[in-house]
Design a protein around this nucleic acid. Structure first.
Lengths: 229, 229
DNA sequence: GAAATAGTGTCTGTTAGACACTATCAG
DNA sequence: CTGATAGTGTCTAACAGACACTATTTC
């Protein structure tokens, strides 16, 4: 547990803020999920600078003046992955003193879901390299990012149990088997095919298309989602 | 929608932080719930200073150097209510630019549950006065606090549906009727007595005491919770 | 014995999990 | 016709909601 730098508790005094406060920096960090090869994966970037040089970290960065937290998250996402057309939701805010050895940093964590099939990779300016890792085989992570990632995985699993989320991870057209594989990858366990199909079809959110996917064996019916929610 | 102050985007350059960032202040705001007179109530403080002088606001304040976000929330809670032995959980972080006309302020919102019966009131140093309001009859609130409060009420209702939460709001010994009244106050609707009792007793979290509460009519059995979770 | 609150059981519809075989296509 | 994946139905247990009367106490 590294102690944070000692700040002078007197900040440049804004005429309008009577209260003194040590400077705190605010960042966003994003747990970017995708599903590929039947596994739930997260995007990590290798740190090119100290501290934690060489370790992997969640993509993220400072919140800039004038942008909302969500805009900051989308911006970082775009810088890191090249796309921002993804589902994004705020997770939790981590702000223990000492979580960054350079000083006090409060980070607002988000998670994002990028559809399988388009999982682009662009090394950001401050990242030596970026790569997808399965949540089962994670490298050593910088800062408190392992805890953030754990939190995100649990949230994602929770949402799946009682809601229609996770649909943001599939391409526009998909088979029921693909949807089931997705759920199994997120939950980390096998599901019964008949029960699964009964449940998702019963929700009424799927629209059967007139198309079949020629998969090499018996062609599978393709589906899409009815509306964007 | 007040525009935030224009900040110079160049901050005093920390030797260790290569990244420039406009100064952002970090606060915690707390939605303090209690139940009294069969109604769900929140603690609000009347603002004694500009901006929003005279309006009511959630108790809260700046995060100080060296303390965790949760510690900051507990500290504010203690300053405002005199006690910090309450359930506290992080809600969501609000950081839109312009939410505070004095400058950029990101607030980490928490909610707290204080047991009915001990709902103390201490006017804090920066609050002209504090008072409990039912969530059905709220005054005009400062900043974006109305939205934060809404969010908290929904979260509390959600937790009640599928978990044992809300139990933090009762005194140590209580009757099943009191527990039902509590649930009804939070949910804002009536519940069936028999179904309610079946459900809560079926959870196995309640311990029937050997005592009865002399209520004037037929005495009611007293219960307590089995363990602290 | 009247007024007030405590306490109790059944029926019904929905949901979730366990479980195994048939259908269709490529080669 | 073999191999592989798609697709389909029943039974059962648990849970949730609707619904009305009896029990105990004070005054």
């Amino acid at each position: 547990m590294a102690k944070p730098n000692k700040y002078d508790s007197e900040v440049e005094t804004s005429a309008q803020f009577p209260v003194e406060q040590a400077p705190i920096r605010v960042t966003v960090d994003i747990v970017v999920f995708t599903v590929h090869d039947q596994a739930l994966r997260v995007l990590l970037v290798e740190r090119g600078i100290e501290p934690f040089l060489g370790l992997f970290a969640l993509p993220g960065g400072f919140v800039l003046a004038g942008e909302t937290l969500e805009q900051a998250a989308f911006r970082e996402l775009r810088e890191e992955t090249g796309t921002a057309e993804v589902y994004l939701e705020q997770l939790y805010t981590f702000g223990d003193p000492g979580r960054d050895p350079r000083g006090r940093v409060v980070t607002v964590a988000y998670y994002a879901l990028v559809p399988s099939g388009r999982s682009p990779l662009l090394a950001g300016t401050d990242a030596a390299s970026a790569a997808w890792f399965t949540v089962a085989e994670l490298p050593k992570l910088a800062f408190d990012h392992a805890g953030i990632l754990d939190y995100a995985v649990n949230r994602l699993r929770g949402k799946l149990e009682y809601s229609n989320v996770g649909y943001e991870l599939l391409p526009e057209k998909f088979t029921l088997t693909a949807l089931q594989v997705l759920h199994e990858a997120i939950l980390g366990r096998k599901l019964d095919k008949r029960n699964f199909r009964r449940k998702v079809l019963g929700m009424g959110l799927l629209k059967p298309l007139k198309e079949k996917l020629a998969t090499g064996r018996k062609p599978a019916e393709l589906y899409s989602f009815r509306d964007q929610r």
